[in-house]
Write a protein that binds this DNA or RNA. Structure first.
Lengths: 345, 345
DNA sequence: TTTTAGCACTCAAACTAATCAAGTGCTAAG
DNA sequence: CTTAGCACTTGATTAGTTTGAGTGCTAAAA
């Protein structure tokens, strides 16, 4: 129920405020708007917008600042993604242009690029088939008493861990265990494996090993690591730029949030098809009250769907950011498609 | 050339200031000192100490604060490590008491414990024989086009990396390469290996692989990672507590310093036998101007020498910190000795 | 009915002045 | 050599003032 003019004003308020950080007043708007009306008229319209909860004052006689709802409306109806700057295109092309030997290198590099482009904090998640399955397990004896456990999933994830064992490594025992695992568990999804690991497997393994607990620990460990979605983070330190007046405590909880894989996964939330923007307290987490999160998925055909995200202050230039995220998801998908094509055929 | 009494005063100034953070004046000292003299006398002595550059005023009529030289004198001549609090002993015992399957777990856990005890940032470095040697190399084919390279050193370090290869994995080629590496390079120190890798090896490998460059990259990568000393860091976020008035820039450079393995290695410096304290600008790095670093080595008999360190504000309670570091190095050495004993015999 | 000029009013921010408290150095007496 | 006494310095705190950007409202103009 906003008039054309009110939309125009709301758009201008958001744009101005995200650029300057200063509450914007009627006079400044009057000068800047394409239509020619007086500041008094603007004031009336602004009162109407405030009525609807889209903008608000910081104090009784201040200029206006967008409310969360105002940002929401702006993002949903008014914003148009900026096209990339030529310079940004260069950055992407050159950073993503090199040769890579691992998917993870591309994904982790992407987080860095994205944080550089935006000067915010960026997250990337590699393309993932849901319910990836265990496709192989190895135990490689390394030294006198060292063993490496390697676990491979059908989506190409590899998780490994070395551990020390007491007493000599008995090659036959190892092989028996590996055979058992591969017979019983390969082809199952990781949650299924995890379930079996707590039920039948221990009994069976006890036939081959004297002290199975140590092994079970290790295997469970590697397994849960593999089951976890793994995010790459770029530009962590950029968060420091927005810590208003050095509120150390909230900064700390923000950082611990980012470093906990599980937590950040729950914040980023389920992939949806399009680019999504979550603003301030639209996220449940309290530490994120003054931040906005832009997430986007990208598809790599049959190789599944991945995700990229940037986290910056609520007061971010959305049009530019949406432009960057939109363009980057395409570039990344293209790059990965190339990569898979090269190594798969 | 300090009198007994001057020492007593300097000690009190440092103690008071590290506890309260407030410049300390003559009156407060007079009350607190064991000997009975007037504040005027203290003032005279303080003037003498200032003359020698051990304490200084923050402004012309303020109380005194220790200078870097003052801290130095205090640490070298006046301080006595505090004995551990019973509570601290409990923390160490219980955190280090569990079962571990890897040296690295113990070391990384130690960084966390140490940061908890001190509420500063802690570094730990595992015991290392200088010039560890390459003791084994593997290439394990994992999936259709995935290979894992594993490198083992004689000190038990394991470094690994998976990578994708184009075309089918040729088992024979792999074995030939592995054999070559093991024949030519095992037993050499890592720097020697690195040198050979740039000279003869490429030529020889070209006999077995069509496109050796990819492989050489990977191998070099794993190798340099293994050659690097690896620090564990605990309590990164504690640095935030001491960022005076949110100087974002210096905080940023501090954090990037900490995250660069090479840089932090050069800051921690060469191991010396005892516990060493470096204060403020005694470290060359500018970002550390307001910090002090306490480092200590620990010996695990024939398994080499490791290092622990804590980084906190120049204004830290040295006696307590020295007590903690001193005690912890012993505990850690003991724990590791147990560990080696269990797995080696 | 909508727009606008005009005006009284509000409030944060910047500046000023006044006071306070802690501390110093120095002098002269103990 | 020590100490009481005192004049002096300085950062912090508080209260008061000014400034300027901005608002809402009213009444006239369009």
């Amino acid at each position: 129920m906003l008039s054309e003019r009110q939309m125009m004003i709301l758009r201008a308020v958001v744009r101005d405020f995200t650029n300057t950080g200063v509450p914007v007043g009627s006079k400044a708007l009057a000068k800047q708007l394409p239509i020619h009306v007086s500041s008094a008229t603007i004031r009336n319209e602004m009162a109407a917008l405030e009525e609807q909860g889209l903008i608000k004052k910081t104090h009784s006689s201040s200029g206006r600042v967008p409310s969360v709802e105002g940002y929401r409306y702006y993002v949903d109806h008014l914003v148009k993604p900026d096209p990339l700057r030529p310079n940004d295109i260069d950055v992407i092309q050159s950073s993503l242009g090199g040769d890579f030997h691992k998917i993870d290198e591309i994904i982790s590099q992407s987080a860095t690029i994205l944080s550089n482009l935006t000067s915010y904090t960026a997250f990337t998640l590699k393309p993932e088939l849901k319910d990836s399955r265990l496709s192989g397990f190895r135990l490689v004896p390394l030294g006198k008493r060292q063993i490496m456990a390697i676990l491979v999933t059908d989506s190409g994830d590899v998780e490994n861990q070395t551990f020390d064992v007491a007493g000599d490594v008995d090659g036959e025992q190892l092989e028996a265990v590996v055979r058992l695992i591969n017979d019983q568990l390969v082809g199952l999804t990781l949650p299924e494996v995890l379930k079996k690991l707590q039920a039948e497997i221990p009994v069976q393994i006890a036939n081959y090993l004297q002290s199975p607990q140590g092994f079970l620990d290790i295997f469970g460990d590697v397994l849960t690591r593999a089951a976890q979605e793994r995010f790459y983070v770029g530009g962590r330190l950029n968060l420091l730029n927005f810590s208003q007046d050095s509120d150390v405590d909230s900064l700390k909880s923000l950082y611990s949030l980012i470093d906990k894989t599980d937590d950040i996964a729950s914040v980023l939330g389920q992939p949806s098809d399009k680019i999504s923007v979550r603003i301030g307290n639209e996220m449940t987490n309290d530490a994120l009250r003054n931040f906005s999160l832009i997430t986007a998925t990208y598809d790599v055909d049959q190789h599944g769907q991945g995700m990229i995200a940037i986290l910056g202050p609520t007061r971010m230039p959305y049009s530019r950011m949406l432009g960057i995220v939109g363009a980057f998801r395409e570039e990344l998908a293209k790059k990965l498609l190339d990569y898979y094509r090269f190594y798969d055929e």
